[in-house]
Design a protein around this nucleic acid. Structure first.
Length: 425
RNA sequence: GUGGAUGUGGCGAAGUGGUUAACGCACCGGAUUGUGGCUCCGGCACCCGUGGGUUCAAGUCCCAUCAUCCACCCCA
């Protein structure tokens, strides 16, 4: 096997696509119920969009982007996430002129250059939503409640919804000062990673998993401690609304999301059972991002859900439904003459809305029936020389094991009858 | 980028230096001429990720390389 798929990518084969389709269908249903509409943006964008939109200090921009020059010497990047792109589309297509807020969702592949592991891929899929043009806490609550509803619909249990507020630029700056003040004396005792973070993004030290760092930061001021009145009441109102909606959540003051654009609300949904990469969903508010990209000042909030991780969770919790193979009719033709007739009959059946197939390998009767049986075929229509001469066909019910002769000109109506309402369902 | 584990037919899996590389599943064919699901019989790896090396002899030892998996960083 000389050529294989690129590292961190997957082939989704029959037998597995059904699961994806199920997930996608469930997502679309919930989005429809919530009044969200789908948006599709390019798989690649100008590199600058992500540099500005996601943030120069983030790992995504620093080490995880698939970036290349196209033939016109433009720097292009395979989308590592979609929030920035959706904001770009909002500004570029002047969606701010539409009735606000604009409620969007997307489903599709994202690309990040990372070492793959359980729950992490170079090409992975996200479902996400973005609400643009609304800044009230109800929006935050609706977004979180949509995720909550989706997981319930999928039958998932034991999920933890963590919420936090990282404040606005004003209170965040204040927090940063206080935090540095607190950490400086301990700086040499922090782990090597946190030493770096001290320079780069001190807030992230708060969610360092290193036990000793956690010990040092136990009493550190959190963003919650420093919220300005506006941010504070926003966060409080959000919690009231979540309670009202019956969403079970946990306030996690140490929840800090990796992307630069977050303001106020940040949240995550965790599932422990799926491995080290347990964040199944992450999101938050990003007022200011649209303006950053060149649009009018526009508040926004959204989240992204890892579909591979969601599928993993559904799988470990045994919540994946069984997918039965769709029953169809199989034309079993014997000999060239019969095959020609049979070929015409498959077309006729299909035209009548009855799913039908015919042997494509020129196999023996026995082999054809065996294959039909394996594929879960309900009815086999056997056409041989004898039958053709009589203008008949044998209709065999493979489930029951009984058969009868049917006049060829009645085949369609008889089968239509047998398949009943299931045909077009 | 760092660390660990693994690498035998489509899949799972034996093989602890020495003749023709077990077995199970799957697949293909057959068991009186045109009938599936059970059973029985038969077939299916010039070769053990790749390249070197050690040895009279290697799937079995050594080195390198590649790939996959898991973990770290970080994230969905």
């Amino acid at each position: 096997m000389s050529i294989q798929r690129p590292k961190g990518t997957q082939d989704i084969l029959p037998g597995t696509v059904e699961k994806w389709q199920y997930l996608e269908d469930t997502i679309r249903t919930v989005c429809r119920e919530y009044g969200y509409e789908e948006i599709r943006t390019p798989m690649f964008e100008a590199t600058e969009l992500f540099q500005r939109g996601v943030g120069e200090t983030t790992d995504i921009v620093n080490k995880e982007m698939y970036t290349f020059l196209d033939k016109g010497e433009r720097s292009i990047t395979l989308r590592p996430e979609l929030t920035a792109a959706v904001c770009r589309a909002y500004a570029e297509n002047k969606l701010y002129a539409w009735p606000q807020p604009v409620k969007l969702y997307y489903i599709g592949p994202m690309f990040r250059y990372e070492r793959p592991q359980a729950g992490r891929f170079r090409q992975f899929h996200q479902f996400g939503i973005e609400v643009l043009g609304a800044d009230k806490p109800v929006v935050d609550a609706e977004v979180i409640s949509l995720v909550w509803t989706l997981y319930q619909r999928l039958g998932l249990t034991g999920l933890e919804v963590h919420i936090n507020s990282v404040g606005c630029p004003t209170c965040r700056a204040e927090h940063k000062d206080k935090l540095l003040e607190f950490l400086k004396p301990h700086s040499h005792e922090l782990c090597r990673d946190c030493q770096d973070r001290l320079e780069r993004n001190p807030m992230r030290i708060l969610d360092c998993k290193n036990p000793s760092c956690q010990a040092f930061t136990a009493g550190a001021p959190t963003t919650l401690d420093m919220l300005c009145p506006e941010c504070k009441s926003h966060f409080e109102e959000l919690q009231e609304l979540l309670k009202a909606a019956g969403v079970v959540y946990k306030v996690d003051p140490r929840l800090v999301r990796g992307l630069d654009y977050y303001r106020k609300t940040a949240f995550e949904v965790l599932v422990e059972e799926i491995g080290a990469q347990s964040a199944i969903c992450g999101g938050g508010r990003y007022d200011g991002l649209v303006a950053e990209i060149g649009g009018p000042p526009t508040p926004g909030i959204g989240f992204a859900m890892g579909m591979e991780r969601a599928l993993a969770a559904i799988e470990v919790q045994n919540k994946m439904p069984e997918f039965e193979k769709a029953g169809y009719a199989m034309i079993v033709a014997l000999g060239q003459q019969a095959q020609r007739h049979g070929f015409a009959w498959v077309s006729a059946l299909r035209k009548a809305g009855i799913p039908a197939s015919i042997d494509l390998l020129g196999r023996s009767l026995k082999a054809q029936l065996k294959a039909a049986d394996r594929e879960g075929v309900k009815y086999a229509l056997i056409l041989g020389e004898e039958e053709l001469n009589k203008g008949m066909a044998i209709l065999r019910d493979l489930r029951v094991g009984e058969q009868e002769e049917v006049a060829l000109n009645q085949v369609v109506s008889v089968l239509k009858d047998k398949f009943g309402e299931g045909v077009n369902a």
